[in-house]
Design a protein around this nucleic acid. Structure first.
Length: 468
RNA sequence: GGUCCCAUCGUCUAGCGGCUAGGACAGUGCCCUCUCACGGCAUAAACAGGGGUUCGAUUCCCCUUGGGACUACCA
């Protein structure tokens, strides 16, 4: 069966990792079943409605490689895909509900409502709104009115959730909630249902925080006489405090991870594994995910965001992706740092990615190759304790390497080993001071690789100068 | 407060009545080695508690406890 799924973010200005994950799961389901994945912008709240806020979300999805079959920018058979442009449709549904007596007008003041909520809370729960206008049958000339749904007095509202299983509510717990505001702007629960019906969505995957909205929406489907889609409420992503991930925690926008140098493949892989499992497998490429993904594999309990594991996953992809892809991703990062890329910069990427976990780490370590000598951060302590006692040796090494015919790792290694034999020392005795001379640090890639990437000229210059 | 959800190593999880409770990240130790990484090997680490059901519960049911979400004329 082909699923029609959707992701319906509100324009917050960034793609939240929780949203990214529900989008990913929904997308995976659509791709797996040969169905469609749609994107819809929930922008009925005029207060926060900016075009660039939408773009940030689209950019995040695009970066992850999540494409949509219908939605902003590409349109589709159910256009428009912005709720702010679908007002007429909601009004038509509202008018029908009103005409059929499924909904009614209410002119209670916000003050009265607030007072009602207060007492309801103080007295221990139940409805906040008392149904005051329920049977007053207010007409169109009643002034400022909201439209409320007539909720059954006390009846079971059942949900068979794809992830949570059977959930039941008593409609007595629900208010005659508001469908449309006095100014004609429809409320969230109402538009969601209208759109999911209109767009023929078959499977709704969304965050757990929406579980309590579901009975209201179920009642709206009933009032509309529309058939309901399947619902799956995904467990939340928690921060290290065990709370729902929020801006307050720090890095909740996928853009922050992109900027921090995580490859999208890593983000996809980690996001997928957080809350979903396929046996013991940990590493998944997108194609594998599409093939392996299943709703049954989604867990019911919330999970904590673990940057350590993300980093490990990222390290895997950094090493596994085609070298040219990684190099292409690295280039702008190198340039942004003002690196002077020599002819062997791709070799540097090849060597460095084996020891890094993110693009940023590669860039950090690449400085020793691409920064001018006087820009290099030199470890003074290393120079004093490791290099200084062996300056003579390093300068003899410079002459030995100067005689190498072809500046290749193999030749360099041969020359280095020959020098050790001639000096009667072990490689370690030569390598450490040499490394400090070459890169100004005690740690770094293998000596032969370092020499090769640095090139003859720079290598010899740094050995001869030896930071003195 | 009310409604709802959740509960296996520190973390992500496997388990779908009978297992020495498995894997991965992180931790620790060893190996590899020109350093740091990478990698390899090893090690430590969990079924929240109490009742049931059952020949037998991590697994099914109930309660307790603990966590979380929601509780707008926001989405």
């Amino acid at each position: 069966m082909a699923f029609r799924t959707r992701f319906a973010p509100s324009p917050t200005g960034y793609l939240h990792i929780g949203g990214a994950r529900t989008a990913l799961f929904s997308w995976l389901l659509a791709r797996k079943t040969g169905g469609q994945f749609l994107l819809r912008i929930e922008d009925t709240d005029e207060d926060r409605n900016r075009e660039d806020a939408v773009d940030a979300i689209l950019d995040g999805l695009r970066w992850l490689g999540i494409d949509w079959d219908e939605g902003p920018e590409i349109g589709g058979p159910h256009a428009p895909y912005r709720q702010s442009e679908r007002l007429a449709q909601y009004q038509a549904v509202a008018a029908k509900l009103l005409a059929e007596g499924k909904a009614y007008r209410c002119d209670c003041s916000v003050d009265r409502l607030a007072a009602l909520r207060e007492t309801a809370k103080a007295e221990g729960g139940r409805r906040g709104y008392d149904g005051h206008c329920r049977d007053r049958d207010l007409g169109p000339d009643a002034g400022s009115t909201v439209l409320r749904l007539r909720v059954p007095d006390s009846r079971d509202v059942l949900l068979d959730d794809l992830i949570k299983g059977a959930v039941r509510w008593d409609s007595a717990e629900l208010d005659d909630f508001i469908l449309v505001r006095p100014d004609g702007m429809p409320m969230y629960n109402f538009v969601v249902v209208c759109d999911d019906v209109a767009m023929e969505i078959t499977h709704v995957l969304r965050g757990d925080e929406h579980l309590n909205n579901t009975p209201k929406q179920l009642l709206i489907y009933e009032a509309m006489g529309a058939s309901q889609p399947h619902f799956g409420h995904m467990p939340l992503i928690l921060d290290d405090q065990g709370r729902k991930m929020s801006k307050r925690f720090g890095d909740v926008a996928v853009g922050q991870y992109r900027d921090a140098g995580y490859p999208p493949e890593a983000m996809i892989n980690y996001l997928a594994r957080l809350g979903w499992a396929h046996g013991d497998a940990e590493l998944f490429g997108v194609d594998e995910l599409i093939q392996m993904f299943s709703i049954e594999g989604i867990g019911a309990s919330a999970g904590k965001w673990d940057v350590q594991k993300l980093r490990w996953v990222s390290g895997h992809w950094l090493k596994s992706l085609p070298l040219d892809r990684v190099a292409a991703a690295m280039r702008p990062i190198f340039e942004a740092r003002g690196y002077l890329l020599g002819e062997r910069w791709v070799d540097a990427v090849r060597v460095l990615r084996e020891r890094a976990h993110t693009y940023a780490e590669v860039a950090d370590q690449a400085g020793v190759f691409f920064l001018a000598d006087d820009q290099l951060p030199v470890d003074a302590d290393a120079v004093a304790t490791v290099l200084a006692p062996s300056r003579e040796l390093v300068s003899r090494a410079a002459e030995a390497f100067a005689g190498v015919a072809a500046w290749t790792e193999a030749e360099l290694e041969a020359a280095g080993n020959a020098l050790c034999v001639a000096e009667g020392i072990k490689l370690g005795k030569l390598a450490q001071p040499l490394r400090v001379a070459l890169v100004g640090q005690k740690v770094g890639p293998g000596l032969w690789q370092t020499l090769f990437i640095l090139g003859r000229e720079t290598s010899l210059r740094r050995m001869r100068r030896a930071w003195s």
